[in-house]
Design a protein around this nucleic acid. Structure first.
Lengths: 184, 184
DNA sequence: TTGCTAAACGGAGACACCCTCCGTATCGTT
DNA sequence: AACGATACGGAGGGTGTCTCCGTTTAGCAA
């Protein structure tokens, strides 16, 4: 790729991330991103085939930190329930960091053709890691799988994001999910 | 209202319901509804100020049966868990009957200004009725409220609807929620 | 440096969507 | 039958995503 193209691509992603994060997916138009990045819309569409692909690129950076977040949640002190809740908290925080992202990503679970497929895999692996670890301690119900967990917590995250609920409201819903998946 | 206006209104709602149900909210345009009902778009907008208001009207008929569904779920035989799951099943089935409705209605929870506010109240009351009944048997955790339950089950319904999950996948997620809200 | 070609750019405009506006047609009452 | 209030239709305004193509520019070779 030519040097000017690389520069433009990077600037577009950066500006788009700021806009999406601030205003949410729907409230940002491609014209707006183009204007902010000082390029034509044509340039946007050469780098990113659709608006969703651009969104995907804008979300890339923070998704890459999810693996380390899993390990951190697992390494913490406390009961299995505490560590699970800590992970749920982190997970929801990640998903709601950009307005509208939680629902879009959770919707894409199981859809290989989605622009978010790679992100979904990352999240599925993260949740699988949690399940494996807690299951080896005998703390998880046997019939819980990563997809289910992603969907349950993603659903909560989507609602929290959409209704702009505070951390406490989120936590009380996550507690329900946690109690439901832990061995009783 | 004039007789022709009444006829048109009814025909619009009926045709719109069929279209929305089949294709989902986003995939149906107002032009399409107008054409199906053989009226101009202007007529649509005289009867319904926005597309969402039309959607709300299209969903009205089946929402009205929700109260009786609650009583039926509560009257059934079985443990508190069985009856709760039976209600969850019904609730999700209601919300997913029209593609896209689950997320739109669940999103509107707590937003008094939404066109779906009346539906939200109906659902909140239904869930409150469930909570009250099961709590009087000592089967519910004390800190669960109707809004929380609506959001949890609505979140599951939205995911089920969006990913077109089968009844069994829905049930396994609902079981998690049920176990999380029942007294342990 | 200069010339050349492939790559990248910009933005006009096609198309789809929601919704408004207003001239025309119809209902129902007098 | 005449007339006023009510309802109708669809052209078109505004905004969005995305495409197309004439123009510009980067980077290499002579």
């Amino acid at each position: 790729m030519r040097a000017d193209a690389v520069r433009n691509r990077e600037r577009i992603v950066e500006l788009a991330r700021a806009l999406f994060r601030e205003k949410g997916y729907d409230a940002v138009s491609m014209d707006e991103v183009a204007k902010a990045a000082e390029v034509g819309v044509g340039t946007l569409y050469r780098h990113f085939p659709t608006k969703e692909a651009l969104y995907d690129a804008a979300l890339q950076a923070w998704v890459e930190t999810v693996t380390e977040a899993v390990e951190k949640a697992l390494a913490a002190e406390g009961s299995a329930r505490d560590r699970l809740l800590s992970w749920f908290d982190t997970y929801v925080e990640f998903l709601t960091r950009h307005k509208g992202a939680a629902w879009r990503i959770t919707s894409a679970l199981g859809d290989e053709g989605s622009p978010f497929a790679a992100k979904c895999r990352t999240y599925l692996n993260a949740n699988q890691r949690i399940i494996d670890t807690l299951a080896s301690e005998g703390a998880m119900r046997a019939d819980v799988d990563a997809m289910q967990l992603c969907r349950l917590v993603g659903g909560v995250a989507a609602v929290v994001d959409n209704s702009e609920l505070d951390a406490e409201a989120a936590r009380s819903m996550l507690a329900v999910v946690a109690d439901g998946v832990l061995a009783s």
